[in-house]
């Protein structure tokens, strides 16, 4: 993987080192910067509406299956299915929020720097985009809170309110050993994947600082994320190796 990335980098770097190719890349960057507003603005609106409708449909489906079972039902399979259905809107919500954040950032960047649009249009895009983003974020919050309340009805041992600042701590403390095992396993897999993603993104941002004039900011941001990941993992690992691993609670 590393060898492939280095080879691509060398070939790409050599190609763009000539004056002509650099001019082509510069004009390409300018073109993307100026024209992308025509793509991003409608894409952002469509994405927000479609994803919200999709999520509401998932919520309705999950709610229906959650209300059809009770914690004391004998049908264990139906209970398992209801749990999976109910978690779907939360799983989708995380991805939807991330994509919305990216689209919103690009939209604002376009509104500020695009030379293709007038100042009035830029202001409408900026204010409209911001209002839409806040509205979208609030609806996500309401949906997730609603799902959590439904999960609490389904599993009365679960505790925590999304409005509470210590929600994650309370929610995790209401997990039993089986659920904690799943949460920790997911956390480790996320750590592994994030490490790989950081390495790939660092290579991309390293190359793009020369080819697309992205500067050193992306490299610094990726570096910080990478460092936080590694330091927090190492710190927790040392703490657990020296002391209690928390599986002797109760």
């Amino acid at each position: 993987m590393m060898i492939i990335c280095i080879t691509v980098g060398i070939v790409f770097g050599y190609t763009v080192s000539t004056d002509d190719s650099q001019k082509v890349l510069e004009s390409l960057t300018k073109l993307i910067k100026n024209k992308s507003v025509y793509v991003i603005a409608p894409l952002y609106v469509i994405w927000s509406i479609v994803s919200l409708i999709y999520q509401l449909l998932l919520l309705r489906k999950g709610k229906r299956s959650a209300l059809s079972v009770s914690p004391d039902d004998d049908d264990d399979t139906a209970f398992d299915e209801a749990g999976i259905m109910l978690e779907a809107p939360i799983e989708v919500s995380n991805i939807i929020i991330i994509i919305s954040c990216i689209l919103f950032s690009i939209l604002i960047e376009c509104a500020v720097f695009s030379k293709e649009i007038s100042k009035n249009v830029a202001a409408v895009l900026g204010i409209g985009g911001s209002v839409m983003f806040i509205f979208f974020y609030l609806t996500q919050f309401i949906i997730v809170r609603h799902v959590i309340e439904l999960i609490k009805k389904l599993c009365p041992e679960k505790q925590g309110d999304l409005l509470d600042m210590n929600f994650q701590k309370k929610w995790l403390s209401s997990f039993d050993e089986g659920e904690k095992f799943i949460a920790y396993k997911c956390g480790f897999n996320a750590y592994k994947n994030a490490n790989t993603a950081c390495m790939i993104l660092w290579i991309i941002s390293f190359i793009s600082q020369f080819t697309f004039n992205t500067g050193i900011m992306p490299i610094i941001c990726i570096g910080i994320i990478w460092a936080v990941l590694s330091i927090s993992y190492t710190k927790e690992n040392r703490r657990l190796e020296k002391g209690k691993t928390n599986n002797t609670d109760e």
């Binding site: 004391d72 398992d80 050993e177």
Partner: peptide, 28 residues
């Protein structure tokens, strides 16, 4: 007893009982 009752008696969740029964989780 059903999984929920078993979970209550053991002080664990219904999901964990379900996972143990399926062989997806080895309990402590």
């Amino acid at each position: 007893v059903n999984q929920a009752e078993m979970g209550r008696l053991a002080g664990t969740s219904r999901q964990t009982i379900s996972q143990i029964e399926r062989g997806d989780y080895s309990p402590s």
